[in-house]
Design a protein around this nucleic acid. Structure first.
Lengths: 132, 132
DNA sequence: GATAGGGCTTCCCGTTGCTGGAAGGTCAAG
DNA sequence: CTTGACCTTCCAGCAACGGGAAGCCCTATC
């Protein structure tokens, strides 16, 4: 397969696939014309990466996941550890966003949003909300 | 004030403040020795930016917020629009994270996490979960 | 006056994960 | 033979800084 075809099949832009080759995630063969040649195994790997990325795993985590995937002697505990680490990262991000959201929603709620200049949002940014 | 002092007072790394100058967010004066000279007004602006960044506003949004802040004739509706846009962005990110979290948590839950190689997490990544 | 230390300056590279674009080779169809 | 869709490489850039080098500046101490 050429890159266009795997791109379609894996749901990844060709640019991304070239990038993945650059950083050593996959290593397609080359045809006589210099075109990259992908096998079903390559496609399988790319789809694997695409899904892992879709779950928010970093490229480095994907690299580790791929290595575990291809290591038939792995312990599932290792995979689970990695996944749980990532789950914690997600939870941390969600908590951070929730906190932002909470404060921001309060400010938005307090703002009249009319044509007058008084704005609790700007005031809130100009000085932290002191509750005394 | 020198950069170290405002850095402390605004809670921003000196590097960040220099960067903000680079991109035109603030324009401190310069002393005879070439050192940046910050006024209380500069500090105020930096603290404003720091809080806006803390709420997740992009640099560009901060630029707009600053402009609105300094425009005494602004309409609070403009501020509210921007804030609401950002609120929507936060909601979108949270939804995306929640969806990742949901799937990932399922996979983690299904994984024994022992020394055997069978791993639903890897299987789930290798092929999407088909419920038929 | 020399020296040590801290703070300040600029400059340039690295990060993450790509994306866009230019300049050019290749291939199949008409 | 030409057109157009592929493919190739390389270079640049995004956000929002952070690290570190090389080199002034300022103050304190001896």
């Amino acid at each position: 397969m050429n890159i266009g075809e795997v791109s379609q099949a894996a749901g990844l832009p060709a640019k991304t696939i070239r990038y993945y080759e650059d950083i050593g995630l996959i290593t397609p063969l080359r045809g006589a014309n210099g075109y990259r040649q992908f096998t079903q195994a390559h496609l399988h790997k790319l789809a694997f990466i695409a899904r892992a990325r879709g779950l928010g795993f970093s490229i480095d985590q994907c690299r580790t996941l791929l290595a575990l995937y291809e290591d038939r002697g792995r312990a599932s505990a290792d995979v689970k550890d990695l996944a749980r680490t990532h789950l914690d990262e997600i939870d941390a991000k969600m908590a951070e966003l929730a906190e932002m959201r909470r404060i921001l929603a309060d400010l938005v709620h307090a703002c009249a949003g009319d044509d007058r200049p008084d704005c609790p949002i700007l005031s809130g940014l100009a000085a932290p909300i002191t509750s005394d």
